[in-house]
């Protein structure tokens, strides 16, 4: 099967006021793909996950997972998907081992039968197998939750913000694990608020206020950036930012680490030279300006502004 997940004009609203959380979203995830839903809190990521895992009914539109309709065939979907909700959702008062065994049995399988699939992850938490899940660190909880979601060898894996609140070291390890799981031919849909994680995905959907801004490969998203992007800095970055924002030559200006990322209203060497001359005249010292390739975050900011 080529298409693992299909959303067709899905809309989901909440409450009496019918506030849309997901607004007419259509997208397709191919079988074996690692697909990222990238967007901030409240963008509608969790609602999409809950509809695809048959926990919520859409108001409009239809969707399917591995060919099973999310409304009609919910039982088949529940048999074949793995789901890791955003909140740590294991039994805090059961041990690592007990949690794993419990979820294996719930899905009608045993830990032994599918141990190969989780071995690489499980060995990292195995030294703590007698410890209660509530006493694990954030990173280890995520690993355990992943093991529990994988234990029945799902065809599609849904991971809702697995790295939120996890420190950068554990985040990095987590993505390495996802890459290995992908090799076992499991389709993965993952959401994250961290833009820098987008490049780990085969394709990404940028989402904000329930609307899809773009669905592309990360490199295509970057290629679609229409202007030349520059990084600029000086000895006083705040002063630089203030003067750039009031400069008519500058189209946009955002802080980005130790640099400011700017685009110019005109392209080419002459515009660059004019900008630098102007800054020098204003008394900015040690100004460094360089052309750069935009990141996903730059693209997201541009899409948000439109």
């Amino acid at each position: 099967m080529m298409e693992a997940i299909v959303l067709d004009h899905i809309t989901k609203t909440y409450g009496k006021e019918k506030i849309p959380a997901v607004n007419d979203v259509s997208l397709t995830v191919k079988s074996g793909e690692l697909f990222g839903l990238i967007g901030p809190d409240g963008a509608g990521k969790t609602s999409i996950f809950r509809m695809l895992t048959t926990l919520l009914l859409p108001d409009k539109g239809s969707a399917s997972v591995n060919g099973h309709d999310i409304v009609r065939d919910y039982r088949q979907i529940r048999n074949t998907v793995g789901y890791m909700p955003g909140k740590f959702s294991l039994y805090q008062d059961l041990s690592v081992e007990e949690n794993l065994k419990f979820f294996a049995t719930v899905f009608g399988t045993t830990v032994e039968k599918n141990y190969d699939l989780i071995r690489e992850i499980y060995v990292q938490i195995e030294p703590f197998r007698k410890r209660r899940a509530g006493k694990l660190s954030g990173g280890m909880k995520q690993k355990l939750a992943l093991c529990c979601a994988l234990i029945h060898q799902p065809e599609v894996l849904f991971l809702d913000e697995p790295t939120t609140g996890v420190d950068p070291v554990s985040r990095k390890e987590f993505w390495e694990m996802l890459q290995r799981i992908k090799k076992k031919n499991i389709t993965i849909m993952v959401s994250t608020p961290y833009m820098d994680e987008a490049s780990q995905c085969d394709r990404i959907a940028l989402i904000q206020h329930g609307n899809i801004l773009s669905v592309e490969t990360p490199s295509a998203v970057i290629r679609a950036y229409p202007q030349q992007l520059y990084a600029i800095r000086s000895e006083d970055i705040y002063k630089l930012m203030k003067s750039l924002r009031s400069n008519p030559l500058v189209d946009s200006c955002h802080s980005f680490g130790e640099y400011l990322h700017i685009t110019l209203s005109e392209q080419g060497m002459r515009a660059e030279a004019a900008l630098l001359a102007g800054l020098a005249a204003e008394g900015h010292g040690n100004v460094v300006l360089k052309e750069i390739i935009p990141g996903i975050e730059d693209c997201f900011i541009r899409l948000l502004k439109n």
Binding site: R78, N79, P85, K87, S89
Partner: peptide
């Protein structure tokens, strides 16, 4: 409340 019901619902249980 803890979200475990969510996982149980998304299972054949």
């Amino acid at each position: 409340e803890t979200g475990t019901m969510e996982i149980l619902l998304v299972s054949p249980f």
